[in-house]
Design a protein around this nucleic acid. Structure first.
Lengths: 248, 248
DNA sequence: CGGTATTTTGATTTAGCTCAACAGACGTGG
DNA sequence: CCACGTCTGTTGAGCTAAATCAAAATACCG
C-alpha cells in the first residue's frame, strides 16, 4: 500500500494508426446491435462507417450543434455532459467500447442535447444518421436491438431521478461507485479498480453535488476502508458495504 | 374569479361499456407507432390487443411484478410512480391517450420497474410482450417509431436530471408547470387549465421536494398571478413568465 | 352538516453549499 | 533528477435553502 499515490490506471495507448478498418471490423461485430447480422450484411454496413481517432480531453461534438451522426466507441472512454447556463456541469453517462452515442433517431434540424468528450484516447466510428436509419429499416433486428439498449438507458436514467429526488449525497455516491465498479471495474491488487480517469468533480457532476462535498464523502469512505483512491482514480475495497449504504 | 374554489376539471366520463373494439380501432390508428400500417395490417395487429376499463385511482401493475404486457392508453390519464423503501414516491411520468407504457422490450424474467396507476377513469389496451415483439420484427416502421418515442423519453428524463442536479425548487416547479401546460393544457376562461387531477403532493413528487415546499411555492406563484389553483387543479395564467423563471 | 383529505402557514433544524486557504501529486523544462 | 508551477484534492467555518414537525384552515363528499 506504499503506492497509494501513483496512478494505477493503465492508460489505453490507442495509437492513431490503430484506428483502422481491421479494428473496425473486429469491433463492429462486438457492437450488440450488429451481432445478429451475417458476414455479408456486416460488410455492407461497415462501409457506411468512418473511423476517427481522438486524444484525451477532446470534444467530439457540443450540445446545441446540428445532430448528423451516430457514433460507436471502438476503443477508449467517452463522457456525455450537459452544460448549464451558470457553468455547472451534469455528467449524464460514461461510455465504454461497444456503446453508441448521439441520438439514433434525430430528425433533420435536431441538435445534440449534450456534449460528448473523450476521457482517454479513443477510436470512434461515425455513420450518417440517414444511412443508419436505412439500416434500421432494412434490418429489423438492428432497430429492436437499439430499442433494447435505449430502454435500458431510460430505466437507468429514471433510477437516477429516484436517487436524486430521495436520497442524501452519501448514498448517491455509494450507489454511483457500485455502478462504476460494475461497469468499469477490473480486479487488481488494490481491489476493484475503476479503469477510468475519475476526478472528484466527475463524481460530483454525477451525484448532483459540489466537488467539496464529494471529496468529504470520499475521504470518509477511505477512512472506513471501503475504497482506495488517489488523484483521478478510485478502487473499491468493499462493494457489498457500499451497496448496503446506498440501499439502507 | 368567484369560483376559484370549485374544481373546473371536466372529468373524462369513460363508461365501462365505451371501452370497446370500436373505440379500440379508432384509437389504435391514433397511436403513433401504428400510424404507418395499412388497414389490413392494422386489423391483424388489433386482434392481439385486449381492452380493459379501470376506474380512478386503480393500480394497473406494481413495481416488482413480472412484466408481461405492453399497454396503450386509449382514454384517461395514467401516472408512473416509483416507490422507495422509506415511503417517498417519485412521479416519473404522466401519460395521456396515445402513449404506451410497460417496457416494450422486457425479456422473460424482467419485472416492472415502476407502478402504473390511473389518475382518472381510463380505458387501456394490452398486448403480450411476445406478440408485440413479433409485430416489431415484422413491421420495421413500428420498432423505429417506438425507438423514436423512447429516445424522446430518455432525453426528457435526462433534462430532468439536469434540473434536479442544478436548479432550486422554485425553478424546477416553474419548469414542471410549463411542461404540464404544454402537454395537458386546455384553453379556458381561467387561462391554460391543466386537465388533470394534480395535487401538491404530485407536484412535489415530480420536483423531488416535500409537499409543504411545493405548496409554499405555488402560493407564491398565485400571489404573483402566474397561476390560479385549487384543490387538485392548476391553471396557468402567465406561461412566458414561468418559463422565464425556470430558465433565468 | 359533520367528517375526511388536502392545503396552507409557522417555527425549528439541518444537510449541503459556498467561500477560502492549504496540501499533495503530476508534468515540465532545465 | 530536481525545482517550479499547475492542477486536483482536502479541510474548515459560516450560511442558506429546504426538510421536518406541528397545527390550523379550507375544500369536497356523503
Amino acid at each position: 500500500m506504499s503506492d497509494k499515490k501513483t496512478t494505477p490506471l493503465t492508460s489505453p495507448s490507442i495509437e492513431e494508426h490503430h484506428c483502422t478498418v481491421d479494428l473496425r471490423l473486429e469491433k463492429l461485430e462486438m457492437v450488440p446491435f450488429f451481432r445478429d447480422l451475417n458476414d455479408e450484411d456486416l460488410r455492407t454496413v461497415n462501409e457506411k462507417f468512418t473511423a476517427k481517432h481522438y486524444s484525451e480531453g477532446e470534444t467530439i461534438y457540443r450540445q446545441g450543434e446540428r445532430a448528423t451522426m451516430l457514433r460507436v466507441v471502438v476503443a477508449g472512454n467517452i463522457k456525455l455532459v450537459s452544460h448549464t447556463m451558470d457553468g455547472t456541469d451534469v455528467l449524464l453517462d460514461m461510455l465504454k467500447p461497444g456503446e453508441f452515442f448521439g441520438s439514433p433517431t434525430a430528425k433533420s434540424g435536431d441538435v445534440y442535447v449534450e456534449t460528448a468528450q473523450t476521457q482517454t484516447n479513443a477510436c470512434i466510428l461515425s455513420i450518417r444518421l440517414a444511412d443508419f436509419r436505412k439500416i434500421m429499416d432494412t434490418y429489423p433486428t438492428v432497430s429492436v436491438s437499439v430499442l433494447d439498449i435505449t430502454t435500458d438507458k431510460l430505466n437507468d436514467s429514471r433510477e437516477r431521478i429516484r436517487y436524486l429526488s430521495t436520497l442524501p449525497v452519501k448514498k448517491r455516491i455509494a450507489h454511483i461507485l457500485v455502478m462504476l465498479a460494475n461497469k468499469f471495474g477490473e480486479k487488481d491488487k488494490r481491489g476493484l479498480l475503476i479503469q477510468l480517469p475519475l476526478s472528484r468533480k466527475d463524481l460530483a457532476d454525477m451525484a448532483g453535488t459540489s466537488s467539496e462535498t464529494a471529496s468529504r464523502i470520499m475521504s470518509q469512505f477511505q477512512q472506513d476502508d471501503l475504497i482506495t483512491s488517489g488523484r483521478q482514480w478510485v478502487a473499491i475495497n468493499d462493494k457489498p458495504e457500499l451497496l448496503r449504504i446506498s440501499a439502507e
